[in-house]
Design a protein around this nucleic acid. Structure first.
Lengths: 126, 126
DNA sequence: CTAGATGCAAAGAGTTTGCACGAGT
DNA sequence: ACTCGTGCAAACTCTTTGCATCTAG
């Protein structure tokens, strides 16, 4: 894997991002650092990084893929339907339950896609 | 909502389908019954039905939307990664756990998207 | 020096839409 | 009749790709 200027820039942008940007957003952030980057390169790089396990592709609907670095492990997402804000969570009991359900159906679970879409509870309800 | 021949045909095809067809597959099945249906009409009808709560749109990846009738209630999906076969399951404990996690994070869950992607266990492992 | 990366624009895939014609109530 | 639906093709959005050029190792 050749370390080009573009790849370095995109990798840097990714390491600074703790949200879940789509390609266009990555392109925006990358060209802000170095304008000599094309959107095609962002697509190609993102795919390369995904193949090398550096990035994980997520699909939260809306037709565009979004990306997150793999370096903070396995987790699920809770999306605020009003703000679009994406939060992460993890739960061992949940993981165990899912694996059990899969096994009961005769399957070994390879990937789980779990997203909760919710609305913030009012203070008085919490 | 005007009951046209095309809509009647598409509705009929849907009622016969217990899988999760995409638009192209619906188009194929519908034109087999009545060839005077265009793909644009299938797209429009599917959207209409979704807005009226008759259909639910699902996205199992692969870039195309897939549809299922809403008349068999709330459930989750297990997708066989080798065959692409989609199975449905339900689990009360799981639902309760998810609601609890949401509440703990200060959210009321509106929608859940949960798909397990797995590989059939070999007989000896089951 | 040379394999591989980039930019650009064109091509793809899935989906939507403008417009004139056609059909349901 | 009059409104709404349909077919067709063009338009749109996101993503990929062919090709000539450039660059890292």
């Amino acid at each position: 894997m050749k370390l080009t200027g573009q790849r370095r820039t995109i990798a840097h942008v990714l390491s600074e991002s703790d949200d879940h940007p789509d390609v266009e957003e990555l392109y925006r952030r990358a060209t802000a650092v170095d304008p000599r980057i094309s959107i095609a390169t962002v697509y190609r790089t993102v795919r390369l990084f995904e193949e090398n396990g550096i990035l994980r592709r997520r699909d939260f609907g809306g037709g565009r893929a979004r990306y997150e670095t793999t370096d903070h492990g396995d987790h699920f997402h809770l999306i605020d339907v009003d703000t679009g804000n994406v939060m992460e969570f993890d739960d061992e009991e949940l993981k165990a339950l899912l694996a059990g359900i899969g096994a009961r159906m005769g399957y070994e679970i390879a990937t789980t896609r779990l997203e909760l879409y919710g609305r913030r509870l009012k203070k008085k309800d919490r």
